[in-house]
Amino acid sequence: MIAQTGAKSGSGPLSGIVVVDLTRVLAGPFCTMLLADLGARVIKVENPKSGDDSRAYGPFINGKSGYFIAQNRGKESIALDLKNPEDQAILHRLLRRADVLIENFRPGTMARLGFGQDALKALYPQLIYASTSGFGQTGPYADRPAYDIIAQAMGGIMSLTGHEDSPPTRVGASIGDLGAGLFTALGIVSALHHRNRSGEGMAVDVAMLDSQLALLENAIARYYSTGTSPKPMGARHPSIAPFEAYRVKDGHIVIACGNDPLFRQFCRAVGHEHLADDPRFATNAKRSEHVLALKEAMEAFLTTQTIRHWLDFLGKAGIPSAPINNVEQAINDPQVQHRRVVLPVDDPSVAPLCVAGSPIKFSGFVTPETRPRAPDLDEDRARILADFP
């Protein structure tokens, strides 16, 4: 049986860790969802008037936001007005026992409310204080607002996405937000490890723009090696060939040969070993140089057979290949089903909604059959107040 992180009960390697979550929309909530999946108790502090902005984002199932559920399952909710002295006192009650505070307000907002990092460090020296923002806590853009598309545009990834001469294209998933959320979660876990050794809390400062640059893979190295900014290449890899989507009789498949022996193995399997002997295609560097000619030569025979034929044939030959799945096909793939990557939400009112579970598997923690529900606004107030006197 596959083992994985636990559910809202707190089973997981972060069991016993208390996270006070002052974030909203995506980057911060995605981070704290990851921590909840790892077993942390996440207390989501929301605006009493309307809660997290994403509660108003569709799609809706019986009046509940699927967007909100997907990022906030497994958390608890309490509504606090951080400008209200009584509610500020409640937040201090939480912080006295919290391990982590995470916020994604514009820099300076928390300090103006009396909850800046310097003030809280004096009161709670072991607290991990994590901030996720568009541009970080310092620098000339620190005060600017940002959304995912801002980070994607400024961070270079939109310039690499799509096809050459196509209009600017946003990555289909919100990689600007999600990348920052991932790096914030990693920063928090690292800071907790440091605290275990030193007894000291610390600040974690993650910017969406910084995170976007960190995810550019080899594009930065390509710029410095050539002096030219890389351009969009569709599905093609900039320095490996064959490594892209290829047309077949009834659609497209992906074929990826990451080294010369694998390319020769592919050519031998498909009965076109002469391609591996062609001086234009003899090495990966040459294939990358003549990538369009290589694609034309491959599609000349690939288009004679169907997707199913080639996937079966190449799979048996040990050639890395794949269908280009839509979302429905991806979530119903037998491997995805076996790994329990997508699981139903434990909330009959939104059935049959499923969400992505944690992709991290651990020995010792059994994969759940469902993912815990997302809280209604202020739903957990009574229990939280009782637990944090």
Rank of each mutant, 00 (worst) to 15 (best):
K316Y: 04
Y129H: 12
G156E: 02
S15A: 15
A293F: 00
L294S: 08
Y141T: 01
A214T: 02
D346H: 13
R371V: 14
K49Q: 12
S321K: 06
I78V: 14
R96F: 00
K75L: 03
R247K: 15
G162T: 03
I78K: 02
E244G: 00
G227L: 07
T32N: 06
R373F: 06
R93V: 00
G12I: 08
D21R: 07
D380Q: 04
C31Q: 09
A70Y: 04
E76V: 09
R222W: 01
A36N: 08
A300Y: 00
A207I: 01
S54L: 06
P48N: 05
Y57P: 02
S15W: 08
E296F: 07
P348G: 02
A322Y: 03
T367G: 10
A79T: 11
Q4K: 15
G176K: 11
V345A: 07
S363M: 01
L178W: 09
T184R: 02
F388M: 01
G318P: 08
H163D: 08
G179T: 14
P125T: 09
D378M: 10
L192I: 01
V327F: 13
D380P: 04
A322V: 00
A27Q: 11
L94V: 04
F301N: 10
K49T: 09
V171C: 12
E299P: 05
